[in-house]
């Protein structure tokens, strides 16, 4: 693996992501606004005495989804339609390095998101459990799952369609992902929602960051299955031009 190329590609991908205004809105703007607004305004049935204790883990799950699925998916779809992926295919960069660069770049952006969101949440009075190792594993699994979903869209759909679908899925998963209110408030929809990666991640984060305990087995199984299935589908269905 050409490390010089990998470093340069990660830097280029990250810079382009951070310079895209509409991406920053989805990855940082919306999560921060949701966190601050619903912490300060008591309109949601967050189920705990300290609203921020519920909202902070959920919004972190939203942030992971926004970067790994929405931002990566849309950016890759447009690169495909502009012929960038095709052109890179004619260089010695190679697809494994390109893919690695994209995943590393997603993680760099996630670190920035987590730093900002945790900072805001702490300022709002959030007191997470200090033993958060399992939360990191949950985020890594979810990143792989969401990146798989985003790339599956990017590699099969037209760029404009990917843009619409990714944003639509983002809103739906925001609503039924345990981000703003607990899953049990969804009634019958809850058991379906728990099969989706966003709910599984927010479940895992609520328990690991809230109580320092592990998440229910179902959340881990759902995350792991998505982390295997989504990238597999993407790998087989991806059209490079």
């Amino acid at each position: 693996m050409n490390l010089r190329a990998l470093r340069a590609q990660v830097a280029a991908e990250t810079r382009m992501t951070l310079e895209r205004g509409e991406t920053l809105l989805v990855t940082l703007g919306i999560p921060i606004v949701l966190l601050v607004f619903f912490t300060l305004v008591p309109v949601l049935p967050t189920g705990t005495h300290h609203r921020v204790d519920f909202l902070a883990p959920g919004v972190l799950a939203l942030a992971v989804m926004s970067t790994a699925m929405v931002s990566l998916g849309i950016a890759t779809a447009f690169e495909r339609s502009y012929g960038v992926l095709k052109r890179l295919g004619a260089t010695p960069l190679g697809r494994p390095v390109l893919l690695t660069a994209k995943i590393v770049s997603v993680m760099v952006v996630e670190i920035i998101q987590v730093a900002l969101l945790v900072g805001v949440a702490l300022a709002l009075g959030w007191r997470p459990h200090p033993a958060a190792g399992l939360a990191v594993i949950a985020v890594l699994l979810a990143t792989i799952a969401f990146a798989g979903i985003g790339l599956a869209m990017a590699g099969a759909l037209r760029a404009e369609v990917t843009l619409a679908v990714a944003n639509g899925v983002y809103v739906i998963l925001l609503l039924i992902g345990g981000v703003l209110f607990p899953l049990h408030e969804l009634g019958g929809l809850a058991s379906f929602a728990r099969l989706l990666p966003t709910a599984a991640l927010s479940d895992a984060l609520h328990l690991t960051l809230g109580a320092g305990s592990s998440a229910p087995a179902q959340a881990w199984i759902v995350l792991a299955l998505w982390a295997v299935a989504a990238p597999t589908v993407a790998a087989f269905s991806f059209k490079w031009e």
């Binding site: 280029a12 382009m16 895209r20 690169e79 012929g83 960038v84 095709k86």
Partner: peptide
């Protein structure tokens, strides 16, 4: 390539 192939913002 006949067209494109370059990041538009670069």
């Amino acid at each position: 390539l006949q067209r494109g192939g370059i990041y538009p913002v670069m």
